[in-house]
């Protein structure tokens, strides 16, 4: 276990170094942020002065080494647009908005998927199966901005303000964005569980369990689901990235003050420190959560050993 954790820690440091280096050079490819900081009638000289003030006129390797030195301290510099510490801005959007939305969507897409997927598999080709497959296919076949707008029009306008069209901070505000964000992964999980269950239910040990006279419910949830859950865990680990950054579209539609929109908007705004801090935090969370996913495998499937 200790060796495993050490290996993973080294691995994580490597991935983080790769990510911050990639973002450092990528943002500098997008060109100069200074035209944003000056008036439309500013002259070349004024622009050059603004660039010097930002330290962007230094040699690239000097900037890079400087950047690498300050990353471990959590110092990502000052936002070019907002003139505030970039890391502070990212953290303000991470907590609570992004965490709330991602957690709610994660719960919805996994917890709701289990009964739906199981019911689908145990009633194969029945009405429940057809309904849940159709619904999943439907949810996966719409761009999220469109689904979100339709939900707003339905729940906020047509149903007389049953749910709010924008805002954050309460459960009522969370419902529509969380449902929109969860839609595609939920649909995928239902189908994963269904096909996983169908396969597992054919296998010997499940038949044995049934033959031993164990209750059907016990067989399903104790034996079959455990195995069917593994692909769900894998896919969820991969879709965490989507929950965190792909949320930008949902954040835009629902005016949700999350991290995704902050970072993605910082690219057209050429706010290098904010992009760098945001991508770093994103990578840190992604790496951390995937470590948890790996640990989860051992809980769900005792055959998996950590090496």
């Amino acid at each position: 276990m200790r060796a495993f954790l050490l290996r993973r820690a080294l691995h994580a440091v490597f991935v983080l170094w790769g990510v911050v280096s990639a973002v450092f050079f990528l943002v500098r490819l997008t060109g100069d942020p200074t035209p944003f900081l000056v008036d439309q009638t500013a002259t070349q000289q004024e622009i050059a002065e603004a660039r010097t003030r930002l330290g962007l006129d230094r040699a690239l390797h000097v900037q890079y080494l400087d950047f690498l030195r300050s990353v471990p301290r959590g110092d990502f510099g000052t936002s070019i647009r907002e003139k505030r510490p970039a890391m502070q801005m990212v953290l303000e959007h991470l907590w609570p908005a992004t965490v709330e939305l991602a957690a709610a969507a994660l719960l919805l897409s996994t917890i709701l998927a289990i009964p739906l997927g199981v019911a689908s598999a145990t009633h194969k080709n029945g009405a429940v199966d057809h309904a849940s497959r159709l619904a999943s296919l439907f949810l996966q076949s719409m761009p999220s901005f469109w689904l979100g707008l339709m939900l707003i029009l339905l729940f906020a306008v047509e149903l007389g303000g049953l749910l709010p069209a924008f805002g954050s901070g309460s459960l009522r505000h969370l419902i529509l964005p969380a449902v929109t964000l969860a839609a595609a992964p939920l649909a995928q999980n239902v189908r994963l569980i269904r096909s996983g269950m169908l396969e597992v239910l054919q296998q010997d040990y499940v038949r044995t369990a049934r033959a031993k006279g164990l209750a059907e419910r016990f067989v399903i949830y104790r034996h079959a689901l455990r195995n069917a859950a593994i692909p769900v865990i894998t896919v969820t680990g991969l879709s965490l990235g989507f929950m965190l950054s792909g949320a930008v579209i949902i954040e835009t539609v629902f005016s949700w003050p999350g991290m995704g929109r902050l970072i993605v908007q910082a690219v057209p705004g050429r706010d290098f420190p904010v992009i760098q801090a945001g991508v770093f935090v994103f990578a840190l969370i992604f790496v951390g959560l995937n470590l948890i996913v790996d640990l989860l495998y051992t809980v769900v499937d005792p055959r998996v050993r950590l090496t």
């Binding site: 990528l26 950054s245 792909g246 930008v248 993605v264 690219v267 991508v279 992604f286 790496v287």
Partner: peptide
């Protein structure tokens, strides 16, 4: 994978 896809796309 640890790099947000949309940031990459936008950039």
């Amino acid at each position: 994978l640890a790099f947000p896809v949309l940031v990459l796309a936008v950039a």
